[in-house]
Design a protein around this nucleic acid. Sequence first.
DNA 1: ATATTGACTCCCA
DNA 2: ATGGGAGCCAATA
Length: 132
Amino acid sequence: MDSAEFHAHVYRVVREIPAGRVTSYGHVAKLMGMPRHSRHVGQALKFLPPNTNVPWQRVISSSGTISSRGPGTNGADRQRQALEAEGVEVREGRTGELLVSLADYGWFPARLEGEEEAEEDSGGDDSEGAQI
DNA sequence: ATATTGACTCCCA
DNA sequence: ATGGGAGCCAATA
């Protein structure tokens, strides 16, 4: 698999994320069958053009926090706006970090819909990280 | 060619 | 609950 295909795969999975929901880089990587490529998922999103049909904003870190990517960049801010526009509540930590409640908005299906076994939610259960 | 970085995660202190 | 360190793999320097 080359990088182009990898990117395409990432985009395909990201497009499956329902509006008003968020997931983590690691989970996207998992859905691709490459659980260890969590970082490269974000990398691929970075390659996206400004006007794209890929809802990259629905992908955040596994802790429910939006990665800062640097104080001089506005990417995180744009992501917050996009999420709020979709109805996702974004809370702000005291250091200005953006947090999303995975317990409420997290989307972590075992496999893609129609792949094998479709199930979801029913209590959230997202392994961990959901500190109240 | 090797070294460093990064839109990450997990594990242990 | 928080914090620091190691693991990962492709892209960049």
